[in-house]
Amino acid sequence: MRAKRCAHVPLPPDIAHMVIDSDMLAVRDGLHYLLSSELMSGLTKDSLSTAEVVLAEVLNNIVEHAYALFPGKIAVSLSFRDDRLQCDISDAGLPMPAAGPPAGILHETLEGTDLPEGGFGWFLIRSLSRDLSYRRQGSTNLLSFSLSANDPPEIA
């Protein structure tokens, strides 16, 4: 009998990490994985809901834009820093426009046939995150931001 020893070294619970393919279903599965990670159990319910929205928008944008012309991988690392959830996301897709991440300004028109059907993504990311930074390093996009970990329940 061999002594049973696990070769797999589990990550410490203060880091959640994943690498996914650049497709929408992988994003859906990846979000489920992150949201149910031990690390994320440290977030209040409202912060968890905010984190899902922001991470979904960021990952979907990478699939749609960075990997618009060719597929690739997306790496996500989450950790706690100063009581906030630090999110570091990298991909090897096309760079963002020179000006950096879009400003994400909502359309003014809220009526009739002019109603916007898009452009909400960056608005949501910028509204719900802090410390947003983007840089291109070689052929890699590095996006970082932080999220609140202890939002109180909202009063309806």
Partner: peptide, 13 residues
Amino acid sequence: DSSGLGAVVSVMK
């Protein structure tokens, strides 16, 4: 997400 929201808006239109 924002794609879902966009889809609901497009149905409205």
